[in-house]
Nucleic acid binder design. Structure first.
Length: 775
DNA sequence: TATTTTGGTCTTTTT
DNA sequence: GACCAAAATA
């Protein structure tokens, strides 16, 4: 038998034993059918035959290939409830894995609604949260005490930077961030340092990558800390080193359910495969067309591996979409059909008979980013006037930086909005500082936290002092806190620094003694006060100081919900979502990645321009494969909509600080022309209406929805903005002008009082003529 | 020695 | 326009 800890695509893994599963579910098999009376209740009857099959096929491996909007969440939830209702397993014998905390919470809520508090005992969470749960219990096998710290990306980079500096590596040539990427990808593939061979990335940092990885892991151990990748990797190591621990979990988890399976990485796959060896009741739900996390180590190949490793796997396809209009489905299907690398699935509408095809996909071309934002917000306002609710509207962008223009527009128009996954509460610097204090109290070996707060507020503990403490700590192999306690007893430091450090380390000792007597929120309030951290911001005259104080207050009051510091700290590192502003009557603004699994009536997809979407960076790095992933991302975007999709692109965009002209995304060409209504400003791509004329029938035939809708081409003249020869203040194209901020430039275009000027230094910009003087 | 100023590089996506 | 690392200043 091959090694179940290795990923070997040639040799399928045999079940751990040939005996049938030791437990026979009380009501498996034929009992199911005869029990229609009390079970299944109505929630089973609302499913279509495929969904139903996916729910009741509880025994043995099952792979559910489920297209967008085909009700996969529903299937998973129902399946879980079904297992409980049939008494096939106790709640704690079920393992349900999701990708995001939001999905986990949602599933937990739904299950609780159906089965009550029993749902609490189900092992339900993200891979990482479940990994932590196991590690807190068995971490000592890999050298972690149960109060270990979970490092965030920032800490990781800082740590790696220190290690690289120690090796005298040029931080310009080899950024720590990049090394972190390399290490993370290794971890995603389940590779501990001793397993890294000729993997991509070993040559990084002049061949030092592997030894840096090794010392990084050493360092983490001495800090009693783990990074995100470790949460799974350490589990694998533990399973390997302690077969009895593995066996215990294998016996425990009778049923395992996995959501968003297409986005699992190798480490997660191994983890799942190991845990399911005994009962083999593994049900994975995924959609290869929605695989958008390969950059994070996700492997669509896991879908193929599943069928290979579990030869008897039942494969169920869910292809009936209940979410979107036929028009949207056709557009999405047509788009994704351009991908070569697919398992092949056809999405069709779940509604029978005559269905309203719904409005066409609006495609809009505008002059620049600001105009795009203006158009989008105007459309939103008109939807709102038409009675549509703001929470049913979302703007999905490719990357975070695209959000700015929309936020500005929302603020000036007063349309309420919320950003999902934007700057997160726990990533704000004052919150990170506050958390660092708590981390240090909880876990004194946390040197990174110590370094962070040592001189905040300023105590006169600068680099040199910290370096000395470091030296001592390194030499004696102790933590920075211990080292400070010892160094203040010597005369190594100058008196000033010595007193300051003495006060700080005494403070830490004192706070630690309060840890078990005070509730976390009071502890935090007292520590921040005591350390002078609150005072620091009170005396700060900068404009953002009051906001930071607000955040700190919110932080402390948020802590009131927590009984233990440990629980709160896990929450901070694992649940990075900021749902404080959720709900409400507001438009949602987020990245396409964050939108996976959500749905809205109306979706806006701005920035469909080459180099932005598909992203140039991604294409440069991974070529054709990346292009297909970008296309899947577009597919995910379009399929989020129930009723309306609005795509837009701008002819000019400011990148960094330079104006660049852009061309519409190839994905726009890949939408079926029958399904779209195209409008572009005169002079822009397609603006004359000619580009999109002469439509062939073939696209409609291929779309396979069996209905046709005439394309409504809006004549460009109807709303064309006539270019004027001269602006209101008399500037002409070709004039040489001067601007206070941007310097000298040449007028290139005129639109009312707005001028497009090619500045000598600042690049091409649009400015109001009131800021311009003739040169 | 600690803090402020300046000058260079940049940004995909996230548990 | 933002963030970090090295130089200038108190």
């Amino acid at each position: 038998m091959s090694d179940p800890f290795e990923l070997n695509d040639d040799k399928p893994i045999a079940p751990a034993s040939n005996e049938p599963a030791p437990h026979l579910p009380p009501r498996a098999g034929s009992a199911r059918d005869s029990n229609e009376g009390d079970l299944p209740p109505s929630w089973l009857e609302n499913l279509n035959p495929e969904q139903r099959e996916a729910v009741i096929a509880t025994e043995g491996p099952v792979l559910v290939l489920s297209g967008a909007g085909t009700g996969k969440t529903r299937v998973l939830t129902t399946r879980l409830v079904y297992i409980l209702a049939q008494h096939l397993a106790k709640p704690w014998q079920i393992l349900a894995v999701t990708f995001t905390n939001r999905a986990a919470r949602e599933m937990r809520d739904r299950v609780t609604k159906l089965v009550g508090p029993a749902a609490e005992a189900v092992w339900l969470g993200t891979f990482h949260a479940l990994g932590v749960r196991m590690l807190r219990r068995h971490g000592e096998i890999v050298g972690l005490r149960s109060n270990f710290t979970i490092l965030d990306a920032d800490d990781q980079v800082r740590l790696l930077k220190q290690l690289m500096e120690a090796d005298n590596l040029d931080s310009k040539k080899w950024p720590a961030q990049a090394l972190m990427g390399v290490i993370q990808r290794w971890k995603d593939r389940g590779l501990t340092p001793d397993k890294v061979g000729r993997e991509p990335g070993v040559d990084f940092a002049g061949g030092h990558a592997l030894s840096l990885y090794r010392s990084y892991q050493e360092r983490l151990k001495s800090l009693n800390a783990a990074d995100f990748g470790d949460l799974l990797l350490h589990c694998l190591t533990i399973f390997q080193m302690q077969p009895d621990v593995l066996a215990q979990y294998q016996a425990q988890f009778r049923y395992v359910l996995v959501d968003e399976y297409q986005d699992t990485n190798v480490a997660q796959y191994l983890w799942l495969r190991l845990l399911t060896q005994t009962h083999r009741n593994l049900c994975c739900v995924g959609d290869d067309d929605q695989s958008i996390y390969s950059w994070r180590g996700a492997e669509v190949g896991n879908i193929l591996r599943f069928e290979k490793d579990f030869k008897d796997a039942k494969v169920i396809r869910l292809e009936r979409n209940y979410r979107s209009t036929p028009t949207i489905l056709a557009a999405a299907s047509h788009l994704i059909a351009h991908n070569a690398d697919r398992l092949g699935k056809t999405l069709r509408t779940g509604h029978d008979g005559d269905v309203d095809p719904g409005p066409p996909v609006k495609v809009r071309g505008v002059w620049d980013g600001q105009e795009e934002a203006r158009w989008v917000v105007e459309e939103i306002e008109s939807l709102q006037r038409g009675g549509h609710k703001l929470p049913e509207i979302a703007i999905l962008v490719r990357a975070g930086f695209q959000m700015l223009e929309f936020e500005e527009r929302f603020i000036t128009t007063g349309v309420p909005y919320r950003v999902v996954g934007g700057p997160r509460f726990y990533e704000r610097l004052e919150i990170r500082d506050a958390v660092a204090y708590l981390r240090l109290i909880h876990q004194p070996a946390d040197d990174l936290a110590f370094e962070r707060i040592a001189n905040k507020p300023k105590r006169g503990l600068g680099d040199t002092t910290i370096q000395k403490v470091h030296q001592l700590a390194r030499g004696r192999d102790i933590s920075l806190v211990e080292a400070s306690l010892r160094i203040v007893e010597t005369d190594e430091l100058r008196p000033q620094a010595r007193t300051a450090l003495k006060a700080l380390s005494a403070g830490i000792e004192r706070w630690r003694s309060l840890k078990d007597t005070l509730p976390p929120s009071e502890l935090a309030a007292q520590v921040l006060e005591d350390a002078g951290y609150t005072a620091m911001w009170q005396h700060d005259k900068s404009p953002e100081a009051p906001g930071r104080l607000d955040n700190l207050r919110e932080f402390v009051s948020g802590l009131e919900e927590w009984e233990s510091l440990a629980g709160f700290l896990d929450h901070v590192s694992l649940v990075m979502e900021n749902d404080a502003q959720a709900g409400q009557d507001s438009v949602t603004l987020m990245t396409l990645h964050a939108a996976k699994g959500l749905e809205f009536d109306s979706i806006f997809l701005p920035g469909w321009e080459e180099d932005i979407f598909p992203s140039r960076r991604s294409l440069e790095e991974n070529g054709q494969k990346a292009l297909e992933e970008e296309r899947r991302l577009a597919y995910v975007g379009v399929t989020r909509a129930r009723k309306r999709v609005h795509v837009s692109f701008a002819a000019n965009r400011r990148v960094y600080n330079q104006w660049q002209s852009s061309i519409p995304s190839r994905f726009i060409d890949e939408l079926p022309k029958q399904m779209i209504e195209y409008q572009a400003d005169a002079g822009l791509y397609g603006g004359q209406g000619g580009t999109w004329g002469g439509l062939s029938e073939s696209a409609s035939a291929r779309s396979g929805t069996g209905y046709r809708r005439p394309l409504r081409m809006v004549e460009a003249e109807e709303w064309e903005i006539k270019p004027r020869a001269a602006s209101e203040r008399g500037f002409k194209i070709g004039d040489r002008v001067f601007h206070q901020k941007f310097g000298y430039g040449l007028v290139e275009e005129i639109d009312g009082s707005k001028l497009a000027i090619a500045f000598d230094k600042a690049g091409r910009r649009r400015v109001l003529d009131s800021f311009i003087e003739p040169s």
